[in-house]
Simulated assay, not measured.
Amino acid sequence: MSDHHTYKKIEIVGSSRNCVDEAIRNAIAEASKTLENVEWFEVGEIRGHVQDGQVAHFQVTVKIGFRLKNS
């Protein structure tokens, strides 16, 4: 077994009508459907969509790190 790991990092945007936390969780859940070995995340930006003077959606840019196979 290897004593080191190699990771790849991607950037995606998650959204939610309810809150920032849910937007982050939605992004991670969707990424985990197609990526293996998702191990960490970092939040880069938080923004939102305003409609009729109210927050309609929270949008969060999330960098997701996953371990490459055989590393």
Score class of each variant (00 low, 15 high):
Met1Thr: 08
Met1Val: 08
Met1Tyr: 13
Ser2Arg: 14
Ser2Val: 01
Asp3Thr: 15
Asp3Gly: 12
Asp3Ser: 14
His4Gly: 03
His4Val: 07
His4Ala: 13
His5Pro: 00
His5Ser: 15
His5Arg: 14
Thr6Glu: 15
Thr6Gln: 12
Thr6Asn: 10
Tyr7Gly: 08
Lys8Ile: 08
Lys8Phe: 02
Lys9Asp: 06
Lys9Gln: 13
Ile12Gln: 07
Val13Tyr: 01
Gly14Gln: 05
Gly14Tyr: 05
Ser15Thr: 15
Ser15Phe: 05
Ser15Ala: 12
Ser15Pro: 06
Ser16Met: 08
Ser16Ala: 14
Arg17Lys: 14
Arg17Phe: 06
Arg17Ala: 14
Arg17Met: 07
Cys19Trp: 13
Cys19His: 13
Asp21Gly: 14
Asp21Ser: 09
Asp21Ala: 09
Asp21Trp: 01
Asp21Cys: 07
Glu22Phe: 08
Glu22Ile: 09
Ala23Leu: 05
Ala23Asp: 02
Ala23Arg: 05
Ala23Glu: 03
Ala23Ile: 13
Ile24Leu: 03
Ile24Met: 01
Arg25Lys: 12
Arg25Ile: 08
Arg25Asp: 14
Asn26Gly: 04
Ala27Tyr: 00
Ala27Cys: 01
Ile28Lys: 09
Ala29Glu: 12
Glu30Thr: 03
Glu30Lys: 11
Glu30Tyr: 05
Ala31Asp: 04
Ala31Met: 07
Ser32Pro: 03
Ser32Cys: 05
Lys33Ile: 10
Thr34Ile: 14
Thr34Cys: 07
Leu35Val: 07
Glu36Ser: 11
Glu36Gln: 11
Glu36Ala: 04
Glu36Tyr: 11
Val38Trp: 09
Val38Cys: 07
Glu39Ile: 04
Glu39Met: 14
Trp40Gly: 06
Trp40Val: 01
Phe41Met: 02
Glu42Ile: 04
Glu42Lys: 13
Glu42Ser: 11
Val43Asp: 02
Gly44Tyr: 03
Gly44Thr: 04
Glu45Arg: 14
Glu45Ile: 01
Glu45Leu: 00
Ile46His: 06
Gly48Gln: 12
His49Ser: 11
His49Thr: 14
Val50Cys: 09
Val50Gly: 05
Gln51Gly: 09
Gln51Ser: 12
Asp52Val: 00
Asp52Phe: 01
Asp52Tyr: 06
Gly53Cys: 08
Gln54Met: 15
Val55Gln: 10
Ala56Tyr: 08
Ala56Asn: 11
Ala56Trp: 07
His57Gly: 04
Phe58Tyr: 13
Phe58Ser: 00
Phe58Asp: 01
Phe58Glu: 00
Phe58Val: 02
Phe58Pro: 01
Phe58Gln: 04
Gln59His: 07
Gln59Leu: 15
Val60His: 00
Val60Gly: 00
Val60Lys: 06
Val62Arg: 06
Val62Cys: 05
Val62Trp: 05
Val62His: 03
Lys63Ser: 12
Ile64His: 00
Gly65Glu: 05
Phe66Met: 08
Phe66Ile: 08
Phe66Thr: 08
Arg67Phe: 01
Leu68Val: 05
Lys69Ile: 07
Asn70Cys: 09
Ser71Leu: 04
